[in-house]
Amino acid sequence: MKTSTSVKKRKKGRLSRYEAYLWLAPCLVLVTIFVFVPVIETFVLSVSEVSRAGLVKGFGGLRNFQFVLGQPVFGRVILNTVVWTIVNVGVSMVLSIITALVLNEKFHGRKLARTVLLLPWATSQMITASAWKYIFDYQYGALNALLLKLGLIKTNINFLGSANSAFICMIVVGITVTIPFMTFTLLSGLQSISTDFYEAATIDGANFWDKLFRITLPLLKPAINVTIVLNTIYVFNNFTIVFTITNGAPANQTSTMMVYLYYLAFKKGDYGASAAISVIGFVILLAFALLYMKYQMKEETAS
């Protein structure tokens, strides 16, 4: 009697050990087919000879990579992507910390300010980017009209006129759409810091800056780390802003890797080369994520 129940229990235990897979099945099936299969497809395409119709004609070795690396514009595209990602995430991070600190204070209209901050995150990036494209327009743009009316300029500024100035404008738009989500992530991190720390620090005579650098930022560090990793991935992978505003013009000088891989695949019909860019991008991101997490984890365990 006793043994039979324990056998039954063990059997049930084994069943429930694997029961979890049943619960996970829908999620895993969906992700496997529609995320991991494209990952494999992309890797396969990158080392294949691909026809213009997208058919794999055979193994191509590293020819696609050689082709892509040999493009005169490739260096510029990589540089653009790195600048785009680092400046965007860096500036957004600093501004988001300030914004989160401000929105964590109590003041009149805080609720309204938080709601307004949601707008750039919740609006379609295509729509935001087209609004800014019009704002920056040389001849008819809203910003030039405004600056003229205010008497700040005498003649119109060609914001999107050169590759460099257009790129700066697009980074500004990128920062605008990156800040909201960053701020809300940091804000929830701020709210989990106990007020006891600040009370104790006030008794010890600490001023605002002491509290910021000795309490708030160190305790916010885990949230900051997660935010940096996630947003680096999002910003690196952003396609819509550059695609809508310049579409890489002139001659891919303002392209990031995402815009360039779209151009290669769907304008040039070179799926193999496009897949090679994907793989290069993926390796860069993976290296960044692993290095960052390793470095940060080491630091966290050390302290």
């Binding site: 996970l24 999620c27 895993l28 992700v31 087919i33 529609f34 995320v35 991991f36 299969v37 494209p38 990952v39 494999i40 497809e41 992309t42 890797f43 395409l45 997208g54 996630l230 991935i233 999002y234 992978n237 952003n238 396609f239 995402m258 891989l261 779209y262 695949a265 799926y271 496009s274 897949a275 994907s278 991008g281 993926f282 991101l285 993976l286 994520a289």
Partner: peptide
């Protein structure tokens, strides 16, 4: 499984555009 799910965060649809296009075809 948890790390596999986290890894999917790293792939945006744009990076995998050609792979997705091929799968859909």
């Amino acid at each position: 499984i948890m790390s596999a799910i986290v890894v999917t965060q790293m792939f945006s649809a744009v990076v995998l555009l050609v792979g997705i296009y091929k799968l859909m075809v």
